[in-house]
Structures are given as structure tokens and as C-alpha cells.
């Protein structure tokens, strides 16, 4: 009886599974590829509101209106003990009128699934030495659902895997968050147009940088830059960049609005426009 009572007391004092103890916004904003980060760039952050003693979950829905295309992404991720992140995202890319011009048919959609995993190796975004950032490595396995078409445009494969290494630090003395990510990738247009091509079949090293300024604990503005390979012979691919504002209007919900520019997509230049993203995290 005493043992049962003790066990009960222990249970009563155990941490809840979803401890939700992370500082607001330090889980980042879901990227288009599902991993937590700044929207465009993957960061060293781990998704979800958990700390090192719990589990967290998050879900996102993102829409981008480009000059000629509509782009939509949604996904879920799990953070385990602020150490491991597992993510899934689905991207749907609507070619609208361009689809007809490309001979695919008006409103043809490119789709891909992205399965991600990330592990935090060392450091903390907020705490610890200001000189030691949070450092994570990640993998993103991408599967285009348009195999025949992406191969027809010259892609070497409809599946590919990106490898990332990220360092993220909130420099509190300046209210600035800085992120740098190196990515090994052969994805064409994030993988929507397959992987590799006549110009370059294998992975190349690309860079993602983000700088964000905290206006309040729940309001952040920033910009990102992401270099990308140009593997396909028939269509040039440009670097991407964005300017964003992220607002955690509750502890568990963040609304992001951005101006995004991805350059030329499938021979149609000047693809820039507005991004709106909603993320729920527990």
C-alpha cells in the first residue's frame, strides 16, 4: 500500500509528456520543406514547444502567391527532448496558366513529399556561451510525385536526399538571431522538378543565411537568403530570398507573412510574391 502510494506520488510529479516549456519562437517557423527554421532556410532549432524533458509537436500550413504560380505546403513535425526532430511536409505547386504554355495542361500541379530528420549536436539557441551556437545536422529525403515529367525536363532522378548542417544563435545583447546553414543538394526547385540534370547530376554545397531582429518576445522581423544549384539545361534556377515578419499571437500559434522571391521557375522569370504561414506548436 505504501509502495502504491509512493508510485502514485511519483506519477503525480512526473513531467507531462507535452511539457510545452520552450521559450516562444525558439522552435522556429516551419520551412517549406517541413524542418523548423525561418520559413525558407532550415535552422538548428528543434520543432515543437518541448524542452529537454518532453516531446513537442507542430503543424504548419503555408501558401505562396508567385507571379505565375501558386505554391502550397503543409506538414507536421515532432520534437523529442529538444534533441531530435522528425518532419513530414507535402508541397503542391500549381502551374496555373503556365501549365498550358509548358504543354502540361493548365493548372498542372507538381507535388512532392519531404521526410526530414534533424538532430541537435551541441549548444543552445538562447542559453550557454554566446559564442557557442546551437548546431544541428539534418537529412531531408524528397520524393517528387511527377517522375515521368521531371525526367522529361532533364532531371536525373525523381528522388533525392539533402544533407544540412546548421548553426543558430540568438545574440541577446543585440536582440538579433543569426543562422547559417550549409546544404548538400541536387534538388531542382526544391525537388519539385526532380534531382540533378545535364548541368550537374550530383549534390553541390549550397548556403542558407538568416538574420532576424526581435521587436518583442513575440514579434520578429528578418530576412533570408538561399543559394540553389542550376542543374537543368532547359530552365535556369536562381537563388531565393525573403523578408518576413513572424508574430506568435499565442504561445502555441505563430503567423508569418513574407515577401518571397525565388527568381526564375521553369523558364518564367521574376517569380516573387507574398507568403502567409500559420504554425501551431505544442
Amino acid at each position: 500500500m505504501a509502495v502504491a502510494g509512493l508510485a502514485l506520488a511519483t506519477t503525480a510529479h512526473a513531467d507531462p509528456l507535452l511539457d510545452g516549456g520552450k521559450l516562444v519562437l525558439t522552435n522556429g517557423i516551419s520551412t517549406l520543406e517541413g524542418a523548423s527554421g525561418g520559413g525558407l532556410a532550415s535552422w538548428a532549432t528543434i520543432a515543437g514547444m518541448e524542452t529537454d524533458r518532453g516531446v513537442g509537436v507542430s503543424a504548419h500550413l503555408t501558401g505562396i502567391e508567385l507571379a505565375d504560380y501558386g505554391w502550397q505546403s503543409h506538414g507536421v513535425s515532432v520534437g523529442i527532448k529538444d534533441r531530435i526532430e522528425l518532419s513530414y511536409a507535402r508541397q503542391n505547386f500549381d502551374t496555373r496558366k503556365v501549365g498550358a504554355a509548358l504543354g502540361l495542361g493548365e493548372g498542372y500541379r507538381f507535388n512532392q513529399d519531404i521526410f526530414g530528420a534533424k538532430v541537435r549536436l551541441v549548444g543552445d539557441t538562447v542559453y550557454g556561451s554566446p559564442l557557442l551556437p546551437q548546431i544541428s545536422v539534418g537529412v531531408q529525403h524528397k520524393r517528387s510525385l511527377d517522375g515521368a515529367i521531371v525526367r522529361a525536363v532533364g532531371a536525373a532522378s525523381s528522388e533525392g536526399t539533402d544533407f544540412t548542417a546548421s548553426a543558430t544563435k540568438l545574440v541577446l545583447s543585440k536582440s538579433v538571431l543569426v543562422n547559417a546553414t550549409a546544404r548538400l543538394t541536387n534538388a531542382n526547385q526544391f525537388g519539385l522538378l526532380g534531382f540533378g540534370g545535364p548541368n550537374q547530376a550530383g549534390r553541390t554545397l549550397q548556403f542558407e543565411g538568416s538574420v532576424a531582429y526581435m521587436l518583442t518576445p513575440r514579434l520578429v522581423i528578418g530576412g533570408e537568403y538561399r543559394t540553389r544549384p542550376s542543374n537543368l539545361a532547359i530552365a535556369r534556377e536562381d537563388d531565393a530570398h525573403d523578408l518576413f515578419v513572424a508574430w506568435a499571437f499565442t504561445r502555441n500559434a505563430t503567423l508569418t507573412a513574407a515577401y518571397a522571391d525565388v527568381g526564375s521557375v521553369a523558364t518564367f522569370d521574376g517569380q516573387r510574391g507574398g507568403l502567409v504561414s500559420l504554425q501551431f506548436a505544442f
Binding site: 510545452g20 516549456g21 521559450l23 518532453g54
Partner: peptide, 10 residues
């Protein structure tokens, strides 16, 4: 815990 410290920071 880390969560306690975060609560104090808030």
C-alpha cells in the same frame, strides 16, 4: 529544469 528557467525568464 530548463522549462522552469524558461518560465522564470518569461
Amino acid at each position: 529544469t530548463r522549462a522552469d528557467l524558461n518560465a522564470l525568464v518569461e
